[in-house]
Every structure is written in structure tokens, then in C-alpha cells.
Amino acid sequence: MSNYLHNYLGVFFVALVPVVFSALTLRLGKLLRPNNPQLQKSIPYESGSNPFSSTINKSHLIRYYLLALAFVVFDIEAVFLFPWALRVASLGVFGLIEITIFVFILSLGLIYAWRKGVLQWL
């Protein structure tokens, strides 16, 4: 097996450990904890009053949706910045001009979103 895959196998085992640990501890914890289910206990906590609906406040979702869209643009920008950042010295002035144009275009997007009021709460 190549060294590369071997490294990520280690990562996989590290991801597995907390899953196994929590499952085991929760199972063993059954011996320690009481189990006395009552209807009152399982009502969602809403400051003492009974919850009357489970509907979601849609206006919040729209606001976060716009921010999430802006996030996707900038996250992809970051993905393109990383390979260039690794090779700045060898790409030299050419790479610098290219990335300036790239960042400038994306900044126009940010300014557009700013002017449109996406970044404004309410």
C-alpha cells in the first residue's frame, strides 16, 4: 500500500475512534443512569409553555440562504487561491497579475452583494 493511502488510513481510524468510544460509553452508561420515561419530561423545552407548532420561521431561512450562497463563492475562491499560494515564487509577476484580476472580479461580486443589501441584517 502506498504511503499516501497509508496516511489516510490513519485518519480513517482516528475518525472511527470517537464513534466507537461514544457508542460504548453510552451503552455502558445504561448501567449507571436511571430510566423513568414520563410524558412531561419529553416535551421540548420552550421556557415552560407548551409548544404549539413545529413550523420553521421561513424568513430566517431565506436570509441564511443568501449568506450561504455568498459563502460558496468565497470558499471556491479559497480553493483556487491555495495552489497559487504554494507556487508564488515560481509563478512570479505573471501569477501575481493573474490572481489580482481573479480577486478583483470576486471583490466586484462582494461589492454587488454589499450594495444589494445581502450583508445587511433585516
Binding site: G29, L32, R33, P34, N35, K41, S42, I43, P44, Y45
Partner: peptide, 8 residues
Amino acid sequence: LQKEDLMP
């Protein structure tokens, strides 16, 4: 660990 496991 000794707390009851509650789910709403």
C-alpha cells in the same frame, strides 16, 4: 454519566 437519557 448518571443522568437520564432524555429525548424530546
